[in-house]
Design a protein around this nucleic acid. Structure first.
Length: 888
RNA sequence: GGGUGUUUAGCUCAGUUGGUAGAGCGUCUCCCUUACAAGGAGAGGGUCGGGGGUUCAAGUCCCUCAACACCCACCA
């Protein structure tokens, strides 16, 4: 870095310029690059891979910031730290995007054919692949780009094949015909977790099925009349007296005349609808089970596009009609036929495709599944026995609840963009072979289905480390990973699958801690979405306020409970203002370091204020370390904000201005200013990496002050920790006298409208043990409260008339102001304070006088309470005396 | 139907072993005091959703009610 003249630094922090150059500086020096051969203990995180088609949104900004904080903290705390970046091929999502592009040209993927379509999608992917990770650089993400991965790259594909074949050979993957959630728009099966339910206002139609060969009919309630052609039976409850005589009889399906039996099954709810339900095994998951129990063959009447099938069971005028259009027609036909008896409004939940919102169609089809039951056992145990910990803990319950009721996972997707299932069929015999490679391309063709995208992301923590090869340096050094950071919305999709797969294939939990944060919402608490138009673009925020401002604001809003975070544009002013404060305080300190030597602080020459700020810094370091270790990131931000702004800037820097005037104190004050700034920047660095790095470059330091790593940059400097030699609890307490005195004097000044320019004299009627302290802090009081002269007298001295008085601790500060104040106003001011003290005292006395309190409360607390009462009494006396003298 | 979360100052929210409530923004007053007006100083503002209980002591623990948000399951 070139030498920068401090005077030339702008008075407003230029985030944009700084952030660009600082990030480049880190990259050029390869600070993000992990060394798998390092002797240091490892700390590793894998990024939740964003969709390769994606653009950066606020959710990423939060997620990546939190990871970066953990990574930077551990890097500075002596760990060999690896953060693996990468992207997800996002099968269905990406395919949809490319298909949309094609649609603009009037084409479908079928027009291109599989090979051409994949070519096109790869092209598209390669074009966008780096976009989102490049955007994440704007967030300051210190991930190791040399290890960047893609869930569809060679290594991940190898891992997928290994896992698939192994699970198949163990009997944990099977192919079977089941009812799946079918998206007619995506033209693919989707898994249970990809199906979202929405409450919709629908209808319940009551349809009459006449009995065969006799009069009478059974009335069935249905929400989906278009499926009647697929009916194989009518079911009633075995103990339902209404229908007991009908069981075993035959009814006729209206409109087609096909005959079906009335059966009894416990599945039926006697109280719902008419108590009789039509059974359509091909188009309803429950009916499928009932059908299986009773040995019925399913009848397909709706096809993959959601249209009525052109088959013999369906009246020919309905062939090929969309399911909703068909419904209308059928209702009309039933009405004409007098088979429709009643229509009721009915609210029910309808499954929607998570990707496109289309109403899913339960469809019986041949799919691949992972048998989850056996895998879940270990995944449950690992969380129960603490190998994996969720933060906040309540998510464990959520995870366990799901795992304990786990259902088989439908992993096949009828899409082209993804890992093609490694199963091969003999062209003639149809014999199936599951293997990593095609055994005989001449005679075998590969399964056309692809895998659910979460299958490959479920392997992410170890596929990125070299798996299936467990001998790579990265695998040995960095697997299992340390922390997984993500939102609660993908616990089932992703976290649960990584845990099951990791345990099964590596024998280890893929991470020890799952840190779950809240979701980002708009200022009204609504989820951000493009369609609602309420999104906030992190890049826009970064341009406007700066990356560090974005990071600081976001982290300050994180709570330990992982509440959702409401944000609006203006909230980032908080972080921006703080960054600016850091910038200007740093400018001041740097400007005043002229002539500083390379020596360390002389501990024998510390003033009370020096000791106070060092003590405060020390405690801050302690708190910050504890907070980060315990994932209390928001608290970390608050503690640092409070220390830097309210302690260092508002008090110590102001005090330093006094000390710098004193030649005997100047040099050591400079050293303290420098030291505290240096350490503050280090503490802040994980949250606000750019500004801290920039300022740190400007601090003159000797080699030995850089830390054990002989750091070239703050990013690799040692993180501050609590040090015994910096603890000065007595002085820290004594400084309270300074603050109280100055604050009371300022209060007096403001109360009586005394201009800042007007200095006054004060008389301190000091309690005996407080006098030396006052003497030590005289210069601060003079400067910061604009006091001309300070004289002393005994505390028992009665207060002279015509003065304002502040009672501080056990002493009195008297300000003779005869020409300046309204004495009645002073009486009111003092009485107000008196009332406050009296109220507090009475409450405390009530407690102390309660014998049960004395018996049960800790001795420490009792003493504290009594001391406080004593203190109040002293102050009350002083104030009473004052009021008397004012009234006299 | 089952579960979770939320309810604290005008607004947005902190508040980890129970010890008597805090921040930011906003409001009111004053100030360009040579780091910073994206700043400084001072002030005002809350019976911690309602009710009950445990305790010497409850925003904090237990019960209950209410409102809101979300998750899971799903009855045709």
């Amino acid at each position: 870095m070139s030498v920068t003249k401090i005077e030339d630094l702008p008075t407003v922090y230029n985030a944009k310029e700084t952030e660009e150059s600082i990030y480049k500086f880190w990259e050029e020096n390869e600070f993000f690059k992990a060394d798998a051969k390092s002797p240091k203990k490892p700390y590793s995180i894998v990024i939740p891979p964003p969709n390769v088609t994606g653009v950066l949104h606020m959710g990423h900004a939060l997620d990546e910031t939190l990871q970066d904080i953990l990574v930077r903290y551990h890097r500075m705390s002596g760990y060999e730290t690896l953060w693996v970046p990468g992207t997800d091929h996002a099968g269905l999502a990406t395919q949809n995007v490319v298909e949309k592009q094609l649609a603009k040209e009037g084409l479908t993927r079928h027009d291109l054919g599989r090979e051409k379509f994949l070519e096109k999608t790869w092209e598209w992917t390669n074009e966008h692949k780096s976009t989102i990770l490049d955007q994440m650089k704007r967030l300051g993400a210190s991930f190791d780009r040399s290890r960047e991965r893609f869930t569809f790259d060679k290594g991940c594909s190898d891992a997928v094949k290994e896992v698939f074949v192994t699970l198949y050979n163990k009997g944990l993957i099977y192919k079977g015909a089941y009812i799946v959630n079918w998206c007619p728009r995506c033209q693919s099966a989707i898994s249970d977790v990809e199906t979202e339910y929405e409450t919709e206002q629908g209808h319940l139609w009551e349809i009459s099925y006449p009995l065969k060969g006799e009069s009478g009919a059974i009335i069935v309630a249905t929400t989906r009349p278009e499926t009647i052609f697929g009916d194989v039976a009518i079911a009633v409850h075995p103990t339902d007296h209404k229908y007991s005589e009908l069981i075993g009889k035959t009814v006729v399906i209206p409109l087609t005349g096909r005959e079906i039996p009335i059966i009894a099954d416990e599945y039926v709810d006697k109280t719902f609808g008419t108590g009789a339900v039509k059974i359509t095994p091909a188009h309803d998951p429950n009916d499928f089970e009932v059908g299986k129990r009773h040995g019925f063959n399913p009848i397909w009447v709706i096809d993959e596009k959601g249209c009525m099938k052109a088959c013999g069971e369906v009246p020919s005028n309905l062939h090929g009609l969309d399911r909703y259009e068909a419904r209308k027609q059928i209702i009309k036909m039933l009405e004409d036929n007098h088979s429709l008896l009643r229509v009721k409004d009915h609210e029910h939940n309808v499954g929607k495709c998570q990707r496109c919102g289309t109403t899913i169609e339960p469809l019986l089809s041949e799919q691949w599944f992972v048998k989850m039951g056996p895998l879940a056992k270990e995944a449950i145990a690992a969380v129960k026995d603490g190998r994996i910990k969720f933060i906040p803990e309540r998510w464990e319950k959520n995870y366990l609840g799901w795992m304990e009721n786990i259902r088989d996972w439908c992993i096949s997707r009828q899409i082209w963009w993804g890992h093609q299932i490694p199963a091969y069929y003999h062209k003639v015999t149809g014999e199936m072979v599951v293997a990593k490679e095609n055994p005989d391309p001449e005679n075998y063709v590969q399964e056309t289905d692809c895998l659910d995208t979460w299958f490959s992301s479920g392997l992410w923590p170890f596929s990125t480390m070299g798996f299936p090869n467990a001998e790579t340096d990265d695998y040995k050094k960095f697997y299992p990973t340390s922390t997984l950071v993500t939102g609660f919305d993908i616990i089932f999709f992703w976290v649960a699958r990584m845990i099951t797969m990791g345990l099964e294939f590596t024998g280890k939990a893929p991470f020890s801690t799952v840190y779950i944060h809240g979701l980002i919402r708009d200022e009204k608490g609504q989820k951000m979405s493009k369609s609602k138009g309420n999104t906030i673009d992190p890049v826009v925020i970064i341009d406007k306020y700066g990356c560090d401002a974005l990071r600081f604001t976001m982290t300050s809003l994180c709570t330990y409970g992982g509440q959702d975070i409401k944000i609006s544009d203006e909230r980032f002013e908080y972080g921006r203002n703080f960054a600016n404060k850091i910038w200007n305080a740093s400018r001041f300190v740097l400007m005043n370091l002229e002539g500083i030597d390379n020596n360390d602080i002389d501990y024998s020459k510390l003033t009370i204020a020096d000791k106070w700020i060092l003590d405060k810094l020390n405690n801050t370091a302690k708190e910050v370390n504890t907070n980060i270790e315990n994932y209390r990131i928001g608290e970390t931000a608050h503690v640092l904000y409070d220390f830097f702004w309210n302690a260092y800037c508002d008090w110590y820097v102001e005090i330093a201005k006094v000390q710098l005037q004193d030649e005997t104190l100047k040099l050591n004050t400079q050293r303290v200013l420098r030291y505290v700034l240096d350490m503050s920047l280090r503490l802040l660095h994980p949250i606000m990496p750019h500004i801290t790095e920039r300022v740190w470059q400007l601090i003159p330091k000797a080699a030995h002050q850089l830390g054990s790593s002989a750091a070239r940059a703050i990013i690799v400097a040692d993180y501050p920790v609590f040090e015994e030699k910096l603890a000065f609890p007595r002085e820290a307490r004594e400084m309270e006298l300074v603050f109280e005195t100055i604050k009371s004097l300022r209060n007096v000044r403001q109360s009586f409208n005394i201009p800042m320019g007007l200095k006054f004299n004060i008389e301190i009627q000091a309690a005996e043990d407080e006098k030396p302290v006052f003497e030590a802090i005289e210069s601060y009081i003079k400067r910061m409260a604009k006091v001309e002269n300070i004289s002393y007298s005994d505390v028992s001295t009665s207060v002279a008339k015509k003065s304002a008085t502040a009672v501080v601790s056990a002493s009195k500060i008297v300000i003779p102001l005869e020409n300046l104040i309204d004495f009645n106003a002073e009486i009111v001011r003092q009485e107000k304070k008196l009332t406050k003290l009296q109220t507090e005292r009475k409450s405390l006395e009530g407690r102390v006088n309660n014998p049960k309190f004395a018996a049960n409360a800790p001795a420490e607390l009792i003493k504290q309470t009594k001391d406080r009462i004593e203190e109040i009494l002293v102050q009350e006396n002083a104030i009473n005396e004052l009021i008397d003298s004012l009234k006299a």
